Simulated scan of single mutants.
Amino acid sequence: MNVKALLVLLLLAPPALAQGFAGLGTDAEGFAIPERGRALDFPRDHGAHPDYRIEWWYLTATLQGADGRDYGAQWTLFRSAVAPGEADGWDSPQVWMGHAGLTTPEQHFSAERFARGGIGQAGVQVDPFTAWIDDWHMTSTARAGADAYSALHIAATGPNFSYDLNMRAEGPLVLHGDNGYSVKSAAGQASYYYSQPFYTVEGTLNLPDGPVAVTGQAWLDREWSSQPLASDQTGWDWFSIVLQDGHRLMGFQLRGDQTFTAGTWITPQGEATALPDGALSFTPQGTAQVAGRDVPVRWRIDWPEQGLALQTEPINPQAWMDLTVSYWEGPIRVTGSHDGRGYLEMTGY
């Protein structure tokens, strides 16, 4: 069986079809399970965790051209283990998948790569840090002694698009949940989850009409687990938002028999406040016909305790990642009690 066929079977096994990539975590037998109280260890935890079932390195960037035109870029490397542990060559049980997206107000581009672990086609190296699949890469350009994620270069190429971006962090890493232990359901499924949400970006987007120089902001998410979602959860709505006053918000809801929410409020200095289930509410405000389905592309986010009432609007409502597992993902504008920009990812629609 070829690698792509194997990955398709893994991704489409019920209930993974609805949950997307995270649905791979529904069977955790033999794999390590996140434990509350385990301290994250850097730079080690920037690298791969082959004893866990699933993992990703996920970067989104909200960008603008010199004329003020809005763009968005996404770079993601997923690792999925067929069995726990690592081995050399073709004996490796690790399977890798890369996603890249680029959004303009009129167009959305996406691309996908697959690779087998153990043969050098894809992987993550801690020192010096680099994550890659084929010629796509996320590579540290940090100065000696600094955190590897304090400066990154990323690049990816797909049909009719490519991008080359440099970013530098202007704040610290942020741990979500209980010092990086992020609960995903009332039943207690959890992941290890942290972010670098403080990047400034500059680089070039290559589009069918030619290259565009851009600047902006970016957000890197790191997450790994073996059983992140409950069996009844059919998908999620995830937001990363940078407000004009320097605060940042990560928030998500997991849809199921009962909706589960969580989030993190981040000050401009990087101090994080975990928002428990029920603190945030996410209310659809408008849908669009996307890929033959109704997708809620406009949202209201409320945190009454903080006086936060945000309205989100997509840069391009048709930002559909038409890949092996399809989902909506794209840049958003934020208005209401605060103004800002961010990224929205929605799965299971």
Rank of each mutant, 00 (worst) to 15 (best):
E271P: 05
S240Y: 06
D27V: 15
G47Q: 07
N166Y: 11
I266E: 01
D45E: 13
Q289W: 13
Q289C: 08
W236H: 10
I154Y: 03
F198A: 01
G89C: 08
W320I: 08
V212K: 01
L249T: 05
S182G: 02
W238L: 11
A144Y: 09
A291Y: 01
A146Y: 13
P128C: 13
P317M: 03
G348C: 09
G23L: 00
S150M: 10
T261Y: 04
L24R: 11
A186N: 07
Q306P: 10
P50E: 04
Q269H: 12
Q311K: 14
T204W: 11
A279D: 10
F161R: 04
D164Y: 02
G171I: 05
D178Q: 12
F129H: 10
Q253F: 12
L344R: 06
S182M: 10
N206P: 13
Q19P: 02
Q289P: 10
G188H: 03
G307I: 04
T204D: 04
P276F: 11
E55Y: 06
R255W: 09
D237F: 05
Y71A: 02
T264C: 06
H153N: 04
Q285I: 09
F252Y: 13
D135F: 10
G235N: 04
Q217S: 12
G246C: 12
L280W: 01
Q289N: 13
A155S: 14
R116Y: 09
T335Q: 05
Q285H: 02
G47P: 03
D232A: 03
P105D: 08
G340D: 08
V174E: 11
Y343I: 00
S80Y: 00
P50T: 02
G65H: 08
S195Q: 03
A144P: 15
G330H: 07
W96N: 07
Q189F: 10
